[in-house]
Design a protein around this nucleic acid. Structure first.
Lengths: 239, 239
DNA sequence: GTTCAAAAAATGTGATCACATTTTGAGCGA
DNA sequence: TCGCTCAAAATGTGATCACATTTTTTGAAC
């Protein structure tokens, strides 16, 4: 009786993205993986293996190792005591910390970036927001998440931040997969785009209002999550 | 005329630490490297090479690569466009961001950890603070930095934080090397240990006072840095 | 001394391999 | 059916290699 071969743990969600640019392979793998996490294409609990991801991307495990190490350092993946790697599940405490960290850091980053937001960037922000609205209208969760991420980082990235923005990027890595499942569950009809307040504050050059708009945006988004949703989260696998 | 061979860029500062525990080699290399950065044994501007570090630690470049990738993801090392890796220099803007990030995150982490600080941990904190004072007395900059780091993380680590504390760890990675040169320049006589206020707040279970003590500690420490010191920082090498 | 070009050396990268460790699945007995 | 054992398969790790890229050195010309 032949042993049945178990399929490798592939990661087609991280597959052949066209637009991951050039540069070292390990950097490109990192970008593909990070994008898949931020947009929630990889879901919480998902195991990620070197060979699976390498196969899905058509590369050797070497650059995958380095990419995974990077993402793990940023909190997007968890390495267990058994050395297995997976996308962490969300729980109440961790979620609360993420919300809190966001509300501490993102308004600060926005305010610091404000003086660097010129008319061209404001136009770009408006275009991104229009795309977000279109995605919400058409039920496109991934489009919404991609646009939302773009909107925020188009703001924060206006200035030359080398500390706050990377911190915030690591936060987004951490809640992306979970938010995808939440949005998918609630439907885009339940999502409201509040970015108009941030846009107005930016147009008026009003730092205090911008900080408040960002903070409110974070809290509003997070208010979608009630205890029921988080209570239903699968317990984190014990490695 | 024989070509003279250039010595590899060794990293003896990261050398054979005795207490880096067990586990995978790449994890141990990471810990050795991180410790060298947090305590400032590696100075800003220092280039770090795979083979140099591998040789200093007596390992192959493989685990070194993964460790470096990790540290770079946490901001402790910078990878240039030429793919060379080095410890970033400090500049005014980056320093300001680090101070700001610390003062936003660390009081929060301390307050969240406070309910988890029991009598045993408070005793440990007191012991660490005594060691800090001894290091200051004897001019031991590295001892001071090690103790200071320990003190802070003995507080923040009291609770089960999985977001805030890793963020704060990455900040400490980033300013460690620079602070080492600052303390060395100013001398430990110029350093004052303010931890007594945090210890009192902890003993009293007073969250607001603890937050304020941590914030003041951060600002007091950073006030040592005047524009003259930062103005004298070597410009960051252009890769 | 400076500048330039070319060669040599250093360094990072990706592939591959063997091995250690962990997980899975088959087979067996109760 | 469940539980156990063991072998096979999967997975992570560290070493090594060849190669691509970058830096340094050398030697010549001015």
């Amino acid at each position: 009786m032949t042993r049945r071969t178990t399929a490798a743990t592939l990661a087609p969600e991280v597959g052949d993205d066209d637009d991951i640019g050039d540069g070292p392979l390990h950097d490109r793998v990192y970008r593909a993986l990070r994008d898949a996490l931020v947009t929630g294409r990889i879901v919480p609990g998902r195991a990620v293996t070197l060979r699976g991801l390498a196969q899905s991307l058509g590369v050797s495990p070497m650059p995958v190792r380095e990419a995974i190490r990077r993402i793990a350092a940023e909190g997007g993946l968890v390495v267990g005591a058994n050395r297995r790697v997976w996308v962490p599940d969300m729980d109440v405490e961790r979620f609360d910390e993420l919300v809190r960290a966001r509300s501490l850091l993102e308004p600060e980053a926005a305010v610091r970036a404000l003086p660097h937001i010129d008319a061209a960037r404001l136009e770009r922000l408006r275009a991104i927001d229009a795309a977000i609205d279109a995605a919400l209208e058409s039920g496109d969760v991934e489009g919404y998440m991609t646009g939302n991420h773009r909107f925020h980082f188009e703001i924060y990235g206006a200035g030359p931040s080398r500390v706050l923005v990377p911190l915030i990027e690591s936060l987004w890595l951490q809640f992306g997969p979970f938010m995808r499942s939440v949005y998918g569950r609630l439907g885009t009809a339940a999502l409201v785009d509040h970015h108009v307040h941030a846009l107005a504050a930016i147009a008026d050059g009003d730092a205090a209002r911008l900080a408040e708009a960002i903070r409110a945006d974070i809290m509003d988004g997070m208010d979608l999550i009630d205890g029921t949703v988080l209570g239903r989260v699968t317990p984190q696998p014990v490695p």
